[in-house]
Design a protein around this nucleic acid. Structure first.
Lengths: 209, 209
DNA sequence: GTATGTTTCAAACAAGTGTTTTACTGTGCC
DNA sequence: GGCACAGTAAAACACTTGTTTGAAACATAC
């Protein structure tokens, strides 16, 4: 049996779609197993619990994303400070996203919606889990910005990075709906790639402000 | 009995706090009525259903907010185009937020977290309810930006407005946690007011880019 | 004070949840 | 063939959910 047709990946595929679409609590295991066309008990058999399934969904996305981001950061950390323009740094974030989208359909939108939901879980374990496991990549990213823009104070960079993340997550999480509105109003068809590229000047100008 | 101690407002107060903190599905009516110190059945008696309670929570916030925003827009719509700088337009959005925060403690953070959750409900009724009932104010806001920045295309403005909303909602929704991190890392205590003001240069630069 | 309409209360209801159990199926190994 | 074992299947479990019920308490009017 191919790796892409195992029960585990069928569950993961169905779960990540439904979690992004409706949220974690609003998605029952019966809905997931129904969509994945597997038995209800197989979730607990393969993943242990619903909570662990949620973490597994995040892990599959974040491992692929942070691996790519990390190799971009490796490269940037060897560059001199004057090469670290906001646009260059942004592409270290954007390239892995675009690559995600070519691997799987609509992956960026799903990924960002999941991130938005994890972020909303202020008191939940999920946010802590994600930041503890993948937070170090964000720290490296922050240091590169400090190196590229020494005239900005550390907390200015801290906050502006979060403004940027807000724009990215918020816009890309809703990009499906927004693209439809945009096409209806302006008769201009947009790909996710275009939406992302369109954001770069906005974000870069803000970072340099 | 004072207006602020009625069963209905006690329920609304408890509900808006818990909805913002945990989400709609994750908050049971028993948790709400427990916190509000009222009987379980009173929610269905006064509001009809849980769904209607959620809408009522949004109405209370949005009525106060859009009323203030609307009067700002009335004033701006009488100004000549050259007065419509990004910073000026932003203050039409920010002033009502700050005024919300003086009326009730931490209201901005709660309000923004609720908005973020409503936005995440891509397929749910809530997002449709909010946009249908309060969307016209956003349209007026868009027109003012088009008037102030005629060199930008309509869909550029459309998208940048959403980038801006993303930053605002995302940052302010997490402002409690972010402020704690910021204080720990940089020994600088920040009020919500400071966080908002700090965003203005970033957002304005992006809009003008 | 009695009658009327409104609000509160405890209890119960049906439906849906995550999880566990138990039996069954297939597969590879000796 | 027989055996151990990973995976699947259906059913049941204990529990929580939103909602409804019917009686009690309260307020208001005449």
């Amino acid at each position: 049996m191919s790796l892409h047709d195992t029960t585990q990946t069928k569950i993961l595929d169905a779960a990540e779609f439904l979690f992004a679409e409706r949220g974690f609590a609003e998605t029952s295991l019966r809905t997931i197993t129904g969509r994945a066309k597997v038995n209800l008990a197989s979730v607990n058999y393969h993943f242990g619990s619903k909570k662990s399934l949620i973490q597994a969904v995040f892990d599959r996305f974040l491992q692929e994303f942070t691996a790519q981001l990390s190799s971009h950061l490796d490269q940037l950390e060897r560059e001199p400070a004057e090469e670290l323009q906001a646009e260059t740094l942004l592409s270290a974030l954007i390239d892995p996203l675009l690559s995600l989208n070519t691997t799987r359909n609509n992956a960026v939108s799903i990924f960002m919606r999941l991130l938005g939901r994890a972020y909303a879980e202020t008191q939940g374990h999920l946010r802590r889990y994600v930041t503890e496991r993948y937070g170090h990549v964000l720290v490296r990213f922050t240091h590169l910005f400090q190196k590229g823009y020494p005239e900005l104070s550390n907390d200015q960079i801290f906050w502006r990075l979060h403004y940027m993340l807000g724009s990215l997550i918020f816009t890309l999480a809703g990009s499906d709906a927004l693209r439809q509105i945009s096409e209806a109003d302006f008769n201009r068809s947009l790909e996710v790639k275009d939406v992302i590229q369109e954001m770069v000047p906005f974000l870069a100008a803000g970072m340099k402000a």
